[in-house]
Design a protein around this nucleic acid. Sequence first.
RNA 1: GCCCCUGUAGCUCAGCGUGGAUAGAGCAGCGGUUUCCUAAACCGUGUGUCGGGUGUUCGAGUCACCCCAGGGGCACCA
Length: 548
Amino acid sequence: MAQEEIRAELARVAATLGAPASVVVELETPREKSHGDLATNLAMALAKPLRSSPREIAARLVSGLRFRPGLVEATEIAGPGFINFRLGAAQLVETVHAVLAAGREYGRARADPPLRVNVEFVSANPTGPLHVAHGRGAAVGDCVASLLEWSGHAVTREFYVNDTGIQVRLLAESLWARIQQRVGREAAIPEEGYHGGYLAELAGRLLAERGAALADEEPATGVKICRAFAVSALRGEQQEDLARFRVNIDVYFDESRLYAERRVEAAIASLEARRVLFEQDGALWLRTTAFGDDKDRVLRKSDGSFTYFLPDIAYHEDKAGRGFDRAIDVWGADHHGYVPRMRAAMAALGHGPAFFAALIVQLVTVLRHGEEVRMSKRAGEFISLRELVDEVGVDAARYFFLMRRSDSPFVFDVDLATSRTDENPVFYVQMAHARMSGIFRVGGLGPASVAADGVDVAALSDPSEVELIKVLGRFPLVVRRAAEALEPQRVTAYLEELARAAHYWYHRCRVLGEPRALERARLALARATQVVLANGLGLLGISAPERM
RNA sequence: GCCCCUGUAGCUCAGCGUGGAUAGAGCAGCGGUUUCCUAAACCGUGUGUCGGGUGUUCGAGUCACCCCAGGGGCACCA
């Protein structure tokens, strides 16, 4: 692509001027059209290390640049030292060619070096159905994973299952109480337990499976049976919900495995070897303050039991042990205070700062008919992911969850998500794709039959098509930036911009029935636009409909 | 009390990590054009204390510090 060629040439010339390797060559698309198609602030970034004025350096850079014919039409130095590039007209056709040649692969990149990345998300306790906030985490985690795949990395999608501990015990006791109630006995659900109606339903299923005699078991035995049944049933439901939400988890990692494989002891031993543990007041502490945390943390309490922090450390150490170069966790907002200590623990174990990253997913509130739908898990009333998907569909749900930064609270407007107007961004983007498809349908042409060969450059001269092609050309850069920043909302923002350019072009330029050369050129552009829209939507896990 | 997040146009938000050219988009509003491969689109229209202040810098929405407002977190809980 033109961007990569220009970037490489800038880097080459900068090196001949003695630029340090630490200065990264970045190209951007200027807001102001008169500033050209691409611009770099490289000369300004080099001003300090080269001890010269930005404009002087810019002049030396420009005089050294050698581009192949047709790539760059004009280069100019502007403002405080920007170098602006105006691409040659042939670049437009090259973009169309590149899109059509790469097809479904357009926008994918090769990583250097490719990394093994573990993206852990949702990780809900197996204590109930997934709710809307899990849905947001699922969409974000899945899309971040896809972005990294598109950038050439090897990604594993992972879900951590808390199958031990107090929450699961309370779940089992709550189900046991429901069993007792079913057979007409007085039984109270533990105060801190699970009061949702789904447990009453589970109790019915369990009784049907095991017979009424189950209720006469010793409580200890009964609770144990309840526990196994509930965890398995609820986990199964969560998996179904995720599958329906088009999320495919590669690895479900059970917390119990950490104990079975003695990973917890191994983690203590590793920390011990690094001399970052100390004992105080009968407890075992990790000196996280030596790694940026604001206080030290207990790993093993004075009563001998572990805090939750320790298995979490063991779990992340296990990820490293499985060969992952990066561990990216998608956590709910209530865990954000946990980030510094986990980062500190990873540093204490000798992992570099790039190993661990946490994405915080903020709360979701649901708006229906202009009113907030209140959610409270404790009272057993909340909107499940399933209900939301039933109401708005997978496409709208995923798109909405992805269109804002994950760390800012999100108001999900159900009415907007289901509206068939251009105010609804997912409708607007999908409609652009459907319109491109419509051209081929009406023309009786297979989209795949369109080739860029023989396309007459000069034919695509309307400003709307020049603009559309430039937007198409930016897609690979957008994907790369979104992957680096772990920010899916950059892709939705881009798709809206692309859809806008496509709708604009569609209304301004007819395709079918134009003179032959022009029709061919425009068919190629329609196909290229369709491909990029489909690729972008596919990256987000959203369908690209042929008609709507 | 300490920590984190948020604060940008009437509304919803980009932009902040890597400071850079007159701070952007969508929606809503106002004025106009058109009704054609999909169900409306297009053109024009913005006097924003970038929450406030101080500082660093040739240059700050972006970095540092302080303050204000809203939300979240704080444990030998999970």
